[in-house]
Design a protein around this nucleic acid. Structure first.
Lengths: 99, 99
DNA sequence: CGACACTAGTAACCAACGGGTACTATCGGA
DNA sequence: TCCGATAGTACCCGTTGGTTACTAGTGTCG
């Protein structure tokens, strides 16, 4: 109904939460993210990043090089959202019976 | 890979986050939840609640009455998870251009 | 007496998303 | 010449999300 549902739907999502977490350390390339988020397929990562970009959580910068280089970086909004997401990830890590 | 991914997948989900939020105020019946979480269909709410129950976030109590009465209540684990989820919902409410 | 409401779902069905694998172009290096 | 590296997309499929219709058993209203 209201736009906050869209935003919650975006952030309350496994790969979004993990991707934003990975980008907390600074800009990252596509392949770096792919390796850090173990288990994500390129298609899904691409979709996730695009949705985050559309909602203003990150920027995508293409460098016209070969091989191609694309960097993703959190916006201020993204950095701000990363705080509650980090708390959520921390809660999970603390409350799940370890491997 | 590790079980924390399952848990994150469970909690990082729109309806889960909203359902846990609604249950913060105390036990609720199915229909109450359905009305509070505007827009959720009975099937999806049922699925969501069952998944949360399976993961120990809430309890489901059936009263043998007519008409039927079923109450859902957060466990200690559920109450603990509700904290970071509430922070996330608050972030969304504060950072989304109002309706 | 018959119709309707209330409850907590389930059954059937469909669309959308999540996810996997294979494939592309381009260049440098062995 | 062939391989590797990069950032995706094309294609396909299964699971999930989602909608609507329907159930049973009783109480209430007309």
């Amino acid at each position: 109904m209201c736009p906050c549902r869209d935003m919650l739907d975006l952030l309350a999502n496994k790969w979004s939460a993990l991707a934003i977490g990975a980008l907390e350390d600074g800009p990252q390339r596509f392949g770096q993210l792919r390796r850090r988020l173990e288990g994500v397929s390129p298609k899904v990562l691409s979709q996730t990043l695009r949705r985050l970009e559309d909602h203003g959580m990150l920027t995508r910068t293409v460098y016209a090089e070969v091989p191609p280089r694309v960097e993703y970086e959190l916006t201020d909004l993204g950095h701000s959202a990363s705080v509650p997401l980090k708390d959520l990830r921390n809660w999970v890590e603390e409350n799940v019976p370890r491997h």
